[in-house]
Every structure is written in structure tokens, then in C-alpha cells.
Write a protein that binds this DNA or RNA. Structure first.
Length: 259
DNA sequence: ATGCCTGTCTGGGACAGA
């Protein structure tokens, strides 16, 4: 079983790339982030024609998350994280599909820091940690996939060079500590666990030839509970998607689980 | 030193992204 996560940076502008990628890689479950579209304008028909059922939580202009399932309808478990009824951002959706519990996560960016956006990021991270605790203990396979907007370390396995990002919210000690507190529940970072130390990035800024220089960051992650970790066979990034015409600034990341 | 690109909403320029 293949499970993937892809920050599409606008599903309307990215629909041709998304459909090509679904057809060529055929993930069983795909988590999408940054839809940048309202619920009413989500391209459900095009995805159904491609063989995917979908649930989504859209938002006009920015944010937005979805879960796709090949030849199946994802069964929605939750939209939005508990803990803050005043949070209006569409950043979390959770479903069961093909016997696996999956969350699609778009963690707040947090820039500029310090400031209210950074405080929101850290608060959201804490709400995620509290919710994730119960999911880790689920005996079923659970995968928390998405754009976490955190670079785990300054090492080359996580970022090409920390120098130009040193003041960025993604690299701050508070962001890293919040990430570590989630991992401390027992979650496995799938790509890191199979490719530790290797420069396998998922995001390259659009400008300064960052992709052609492979000046990337690894910020899209798939976290596995114990049942999922026991099934982990492969993990990778479809970096060729980032080299296409009119690409997202992120590439899809994926795992392969045993049946 | 700097959103240097890109998408969205909108109808030109602001905002958001990382």
C-alpha cells in the first residue's frame, strides 16, 4: 500500500500536475495541502474521473486540506483539530481509507517570528501533539502526513544549508522542540528512518534557482505509529514532479507499507 | 539585504507562502 502527501500550492492551478502524478504513481491514499480553494470549487469530478474518492476541507484563498483514496471513499473521522473553537483555518482532516487511519496536516508556517503568527504555529503544534497522543495508541495503522513546516535539524539531511534560513520560523528551537515532543510519543519519521542523513528534500523555493541547485528543505513528513512502522518497506520523494512545467514548490513524499 | 517567485482574489496591488 502506497500513502503519499503533496502540498499542491493551489489545486486549481496544479490540477494537471496532480492528475498526471496520480496516474503515474497510483497512490492508494493521497493527502493534499494548500488547496487554496473553497469547498464549492474543489475539483471533485476530475478526481473521481481519475479513480479517486475524496474528502476535503477548503478555504477561500489559502490553506485547505484533502484526503484522496483510490477506488474508494475515505470515511471522514474529523475535520479541524480540537482545542480552539476560534481557529478558522482549514489545516487538518482525518479519515479511514483502505483500513488505514490517515491525517492530512498543514501546520502553520509561523513567519515572521517572533510575533502572533509564530505564537499561532506553536499553539497549533501543541494541539496536534495532544490529539496525536490518542492516535498513536490505536492498534490500527495510523499515518500523520503533511507539511509540518519544520526543519528538524541543521544537518544536510534536513536542509541544504541553514545560513539563509537561520531566522526563519521553520528552524527555530521552539518549532524543533514542538516537533520533538510529537516524536517523543513514539512516532517514526518514515523518510528519516530509512534515509537518515541523506539530502532528500521536499521543498525548494521558486526563486534563485533553488531547485536546479538542489537547495531544498525536508518539511513534508509522514509519521507512523507502531503498527504502521512494522509495515514500512520503502519511503521516498517524487522529485521529478518539482521539475515539471508550472510545478508546486513542494514535491510529493510517500511510503510503501506491506499488505 | 531582499519573497528575488507564484497563486489567489480581483481587476492592480495586496496578501500569503517558507
Amino acid at each position: 500500500m502506497k500513502i503519499a502527501t503533496f502540498n499542491v500550492n493551489g489545486i486549481t492551478a496544479r490540477l494537471p500536475r496532480l492528475l498526471e502524478w496520480l496516474e503515474s504513481t497510483r497512490p492508494d491514499v493521497a493527502c493534499l495541502q494548500e488547496l487554496k480553494t473553497s469547498d464549492e470549487t474543489f475539483p471533485v469530478d476530475a478526481l473521481r474521473d481519475a479513480g479517486y474518492g475524496a474528502i476535503w476541507h477548503g478555504q477561500k484563498g489559502f490553506n485547505g486540506v484533502a484526503i484522496l483514496a483510490r477506488d474508494a471513499e475515505p470515511q471522514e473521522r474529523r475535520r479541524g483539530l480540537p482545542g480552539d473553537p476560534d481557529d478558522t483555518h482549514s489545516r487538518y482532516i482525518e479519515a479511514e481509507a483502505h483500513g488505514v487511519v490517515v491525517a492530512s496536516i498543514y501546520l502553520p508556517n509561523g513567519n515572521p517570528q517572533p510575533g502572533p503568527k509564530f505564537a499561532y504555529k506553536l499553539a497549533w503544534f501543541e494541539r496536534l501533539r495532544e490529539h496525536a497522543a490518542s492516535l498513536f495508541d490505536d492498534p490500527r495503522t495510523v499515518v500523520l502526513a503533511g507539511d509540518y513546516n519544520v526543519v528538524a535539524t541543521d544537518e544536510v539531511g534536513d536542509i541544504y544549508s541553514p545560513r539563509s534560513y537561520k531566522d526563519d520560523a521553520l528552524l527555530q528551537p521552539e518549532s524543533r522542540a514542538a516537533w520533538q515532543r510529537v516524536l517523543d510519543q513514539g512516532w517514526t519519521d518514515a523518510i528519516d528512518s530509512l534515509h537518515h542523513g541523506k539530502p532528500i528534500y521536499t521543498y525548494w523555493d521558486y526563486f534563485r534557482n533553488r531547485f536546479s541547485r538542489d537547495s531544498g528543505l525536508r518539511i513534508d513528513h509522514l509519521l507512523l505509529n507502531a503498527a504502521a512502522k512494522a509495515r514500512l518497506e520503502q519511503a521516498g520523494v517524487d522529485r521529478d514532479v518539482r521539475a515539471q512545467e508550472k510545478p508546486s514548490d513542494h514535491a510529493p513524499a510517500w511510503i510503501l507499507l506491506s499488505d
